[in-house]
Every structure is written in structure tokens, then in C-alpha cells.
Nucleic acid binder design. Structure first.
Lengths: 110, 110
DNA sequence: CGAATCCATTGACGTTCGTCAATGGGTCTG
DNA sequence: CAGACCCATTGACGAACGTCAATGGATTCG
């Protein structure tokens, strides 16, 4: 490993390549996926062939129904997920207009 | 879009493909990267050819030195980053034994 | 040795997060 | 219509987070 030579009192600020706006946006995506429950939900939707009903998630995870609803709202706000209502059911799927950044991250996981 | 037919009162819990342990581990990686400052630091280290000195980060970001130190500790705990001390300086780089999961996620970003 | 520099740790504070209980609006069935 | 079912929202609470000020250890320079 090569360590740079340094002079006391002199710093060499690295050039930040990513635009601040993009950093913020990527951070939002990561934040939405950083919870174990939401991560499993997102992976499930990524691999699902059909939209998945909320009631299936409440049956799967050991958390209350309002909490599942809360997590889905987070995923919605992050633009990762999309909801369609049919009768009494709400079906979720990955957002059809998922950003390329989000798509790359999702594909890199699991 | 094809919505599944459903019968009242019947749920179809999806099969969770990822192991709980792996979900937890991936979640830790995402959590470490989900802060804008840490994300920029991680990207910077990913693209750096040489280890980067802490003092360069404190010169770059508009946060105090203890906060930078705190963020580096988070990245260390997540196993993303590695520190080498030389005299009064601490140099950070991407962990040489970075997990494949972390590597894929980092490569998918920005 | 004494002063200056670099950096980690600690303690504190306000904010955000994950969760639940309670509530309410929709929708279907009898 | 009345009851059952599905789901979102609200309010509340403890835990975790991001930040800073203060402190202290380690190292280098004069």
C-alpha cells in the first residue's frame, strides 16, 4: 500500500465527482432500503412476477399492519414502489418508472 | 398489468428468498451508506488510487472534525473501510477484504 | 521540554426512525 | 343496512442518528 507524503498543516481536499443533488437522491434510495423489513419487501417485489397484496406482507412479517403500511409509504415516497387498488385490496409492485440509479442498486443486492 | 385474483380472508405470503442473516448484513451496509456525507466519503475512497487522509475530509465537508471521525467509525464498523496510521495522520481506504455484497452495491452507485 | 497539529472519544441535544394502539374510510357480503 | 374485512393515517414512545463542544492521547517541530 502506498501512502502519500504529507506536509504538516497542508490538506489535499479530494475532488467530489458526484453532484450534490445526485448524492442526496441516491442517499434517499439507500435510506429507504436500509431497513431489514423494507429490504425484504423490496427484494420480494423485485422478484415477483405479479403485484403483491399488502395482506400477504402482513401475513409474512412479525409486525403490525400499520407498520407494514408505514413501510410501504416510505418505499412509495422514495419512488421505488407503486400501488394499485382493486376492491378492498392494495397491490404493490416495483415502480414502472424506476430510476436507473435505483434499478442498479436493487440489482446489486441479494 | 395483471392483478392476481383473490379470495376474501385468504393471504398468500410470499416466499422470502434471502436468508435473514444476509438481509441483516446487507441492511447494515446500506445503513452505513445512507447518509449523504458518508456516501460521498465512500465514493471518494472507491475512486481514490491512494489512501486518503482524514484531514482532507475535514477540509472538504462543512462539518466538524469530530463528526468526520464519527462517520469514519461508522464506515469502519460496517467493514467498508480500513485505516492505517502514519505519524500524526490517519489514512483511510476501501477495505481490502470488502465483502462481494458491499462491492456490488458500491459499484452500482454513482 | 513546550507548543502545535492530527484525530478519536465522550457527553449532550434535537431530529428522525421503527413500532404499536387506536381510529377511520372503503368495500364487499349477507 | 349491518357486519366483516382491508388498509391508511394519526398519535405516542423509546431507540438510534447526526451534529457539535470539550477533552485527551499521540506525534512532530522548535
Amino acid at each position: 500500500m502506498v501512502l502519500p507524503e504529507r506536509e504538516r498543516g497542508v490538506c489535499c481536499p479530494p475532488t467530489l465527482k458526484a453532484r450534490p443533488q445526485k448524492v442526496e437522491q441516491t442517499s434517499e434510495i439507500l435510506k429507504a432500503l436500509a431497513d431489514p423489513t423494507r429490504l425484504q419487501i423490496a427484494l420480494c417485489l423485485r422478484d415477483a412476477k405479479e403485484p403483491v397484496c399488502i395482506c400477504d406482507f402482513t401475513a409474512t412479517f412479525d409486525i403490525s399492519q400499520p407498520t407494514v403500511s408505514h413501510h410501504m409509504a416510505k418505499l412509495r415516497e422514495a419512488g421505488l414502489v407503486d400501488v394499485t387498488k382493486r376492491g378492498i385490496w392494495s397491490f404493490y409492485r416495483l415502480a414502472p418508472d424506476l430510476s436507473p440509479a435505483a434499478r442498479r442498486i436493487l440489482d446489486a443486492i441479494g
